[in-house]
Design a protein around this nucleic acid. Structure first.
Lengths: 212, 212
DNA sequence: CTCATAAATGAGACTTCTCTCAATAATGAG
DNA sequence: CTCATTATTGAGAGAAGTCTCATTTATGAG
């Protein structure tokens, strides 16, 4: 159940780094279970197998660690998405690839999905971070003549929100590839892609295999 | 600044009803300012000009009053929207009318807008309540051959979420009729309305006059 | 192995609320 | 106006956390 996003590459780092990562991973776990609002410091330390006071050797307060958890996840998801996009040149393909990758990651790792959803509601900053990967692809699509849109943060928020609803629904009701396909459909409709072309485009890109 | 949704028709009711309504209106005000999570009971009573203990003559705990506030608003918005829809027969017109009315109400009365946004995130029940007015109109649109959709809660959530993003953006950045028009545009695109028809449809329905 | 340094510990002082209740005040029917 | 009923009051007990700090424990360079 426990993932170790922060421990990851730090196995051989000094004790200080390892304890810090243990606290972050513990916080991630708890945020996943109960949301960002209600996690208690005493829970984070207990769940990490540490004493209460240890927390204060590493973070000044609750907000600080919660923010680092969110940001760490956002960066990691961005990294994973980029990984799968190398060599994809067509803007529509890029949008579909990124969207399905994003949703797959969030569903495969519900801890992250929960954080993505909370962050999206609560901070404009995180929202910009999460939608940044889309902006360049939409710009490309405009240049390639695929889209009929006004490209600004409002549009990015609307698309991000389609993705978030898709993730939230699957987290609540169970994974369902069909909902991912429909999210892709809705996004292409929003972007003004010709209605008749959409089914074929999606069929190619949303295969019933999960990400690695 | 203070609205009196709950006091409204109760001016002549007994003292009990008036105090209860005062607490609800006070809670509404505070929820609007700081969200549903952080409102304290002691704040609600203080802001209503009552003593702390009075709260417990009317509600058992925080959740109870917060839920009543949300639900009261949802019902009132539904009522106001229905009011403006009498005699509108075409499904597309109905969807546009309801959408713009909803957004206008939430922007005109930011207290309500804030609650709508919070409720949407937090309870499936409230989400169903808020999207109920749409369901029948989408069914009508299917029968009239206007839409190309699968009509279920997922679609309703996606449309609701477009509206919520529109409201959130305007609450954060100031009222902007253009964002309302674009939300309508996005919704019609989502519903599969022919791209070429949309501008004209929207121009008729989103006038630069606010609701009554 | 030794020892200076760094890390971890957890009891408890503090803070910030919620909720109770005996005492007080207001209400309105007769 | 009277008085039983109903509503309000606010002090304080209790619950649930946060954060501090003197003390103990672990680490690893020499």
């Amino acid at each position: 159940m426990t993932v170790s996003l922060f421990q990851k590459a730090n196995q051989k780092a000094g004790k200080r780094e390892r304890t810090r990562a243990a606290l972050l991973d513990s916080a991630l776990d708890l945020v996943a279970q109960q949301g960002m609002e209600t996690v208690k410091i005493s829970e984070i330390t207990k769940h990490a197998g540490l004493a209460n006071g240890t927390f204060y050797n590493y973070f000044t307060d609750r907000d600080e660690i919660i923010w680092e958890v969110s940001y760490g996840i956002a960066k990691e998801i961005g990294r994973q998405i980029d990984e799968g996009m190398v060599g994809v040149d067509d803007a529509i393909e890029r949008v579909l690839t990124a969207t399905t990758a994003f949703i797959d990651i969030a569903i495969d790792q519900p801890e992250w999905g929960a954080v993505v959803i909370s962050s999206n509601h609560h901070t404009t900053e995180m929202r910009k971070d999460v939608t940044r990967f889309l902006r360049a692809d939409l710009q490309l699509g405009l240049e390639q003549g695929h889209f009929s849109i006004t490209l600004d943060q409002y549009l990015l928020d609307q698309i991000g929100s389609i993705i978030v609803v898709c993730i939230r629904t699957q987290l609540e009701e169970g994974a369902d590839l069909n909902l991912t396909r429909r999210a892709c459909d809705y996004i292409l409709r929003l972007l003004g892609v010709a209605h008749a072309d959409i089914p074929e485009l999606i069929a190619q890109h949303v295969q019933p295999t999960a990400t690695s």
